Amino acid sequence: MLDYGKEAEAYDATRGGEARAGAAADAALGLVPADASRLLDVACGTGIVTRRLAADRPGLQVTGCDLTAGMARMAAARLPGAILLADSRRLPFSDGTFDAVTSIWLLHLLEDPAEVRAVVAECARVLRPGGVYVTTVDKAAAHDVGSDIDSVMAPRPRRPARDACATVAAHAAEHGLLPAGRASFVGLGQGRSPRRTIADLRRGWFTVLPPGDPRTETYADRLATLPDQDRPRPDPRFTLRCFRRPEAG
């Protein structure tokens, strides 16, 4: 896994910046009830989406939390007084604190399936009756856009998707959450070019192909033969799922 403390400073610029953040926030808020008053953004990273959630829904009190100190510092600069350093597997909030909880681009990062279950359980625990949990699912699949890059990379080894939609839905159901909608948004500015994909390979972004592995260089060599090395291919399209805690009684 990447060192997100070291990634913090360059994180936004390499992942679509404000355009992607705005698209993510807009799609997430479309699944949050209009009368929600308190929202928790779990694993908020640099706070670029968290700030948009707050700005785009006046009157919504938004809190963010992240496990990585470097990320949390950047988020705190964007939303002073609203960011906590916290582990999403053990949230420091009482049961039923929030009307909505979001986790954008979190579950796919977790190595152990038990950690995914723990995060979903915590997000469910801090929801009040009638509250909603909104999360991205199937993140890796979003980048398969049918391009020539995808054709080259198709045979690569992959780890099981920790954020598979069916898996997340099953965990949500275990903790009393019911399906309540879905949405999608475009990862603006994240379309991959061959040259950028080669750089990502060598940085370890493809988690089962570590830097220096001979297989990594084999894929890099194949990508280097593609035309238009600096032309981005289509942007990914990310999926959000929403789950609701039923009203008491």
Results as ranks from 00 to 15, higher is better:
residue 126 V to F: 01
residue 186 V to D: 08
residue 212 G to W: 02
residue 134 V to Q: 01
residue 199 A to F: 03
residue 28 A to Q: 05
residue 230 D to Q: 06
residue 76 A to L: 07
residue 113 P to F: 08
residue 194 P to A: 05
residue 243 F to W: 01
residue 61 Q to G: 11
residue 75 A to K: 05
residue 143 H to Y: 11
residue 113 P to S: 14
residue 23 A to T: 01
residue 171 H to W: 15
residue 248 A to C: 03
residue 43 A to N: 03
residue 61 Q to N: 10
residue 163 D to G: 07
residue 121 A to M: 10
residue 136 T to P: 05
residue 139 K to G: 08
residue 76 A to D: 15
residue 212 G to A: 11
residue 128 R to Y: 03
residue 6 K to T: 12
residue 49 V to L: 04
residue 219 Y to L: 13
residue 186 V to N: 07
residue 212 G to P: 03
residue 126 V to T: 10
residue 105 W to L: 15
residue 29 L to H: 06
residue 153 M to S: 08
residue 106 L to D: 14
residue 52 R to W: 12
residue 120 V to L: 11
residue 229 Q to K: 02
residue 13 A to R: 15
residue 171 H to A: 04
residue 165 C to F: 01
residue 190 Q to R: 15
residue 71 M to C: 04
residue 28 A to V: 08
residue 41 D to L: 05
residue 120 V to D: 13
residue 226 L to I: 06
residue 198 I to A: 06
residue 118 A to I: 00
residue 76 A to C: 07
residue 137 V to Q: 03
residue 70 G to W: 00
residue 45 G to L: 11
residue 222 R to F: 01
residue 194 P to F: 09
residue 150 D to T: 07
residue 224 A to L: 08
residue 74 M to C: 01
residue 232 P to F: 04
residue 16 G to A: 07
residue 59 G to M: 03
residue 208 V to Q: 15
residue 48 I to M: 09
residue 85 L to H: 11
residue 15 R to Y: 12
residue 43 A to I: 02
residue 128 R to N: 03
residue 47 G to P: 09
residue 91 L to T: 07
residue 224 A to P: 14
residue 112 D to L: 03
residue 198 I to W: 10
residue 164 A to M: 01
residue 228 D to L: 11
residue 97 T to N: 02
residue 166 A to Q: 13
residue 179 P to K: 04
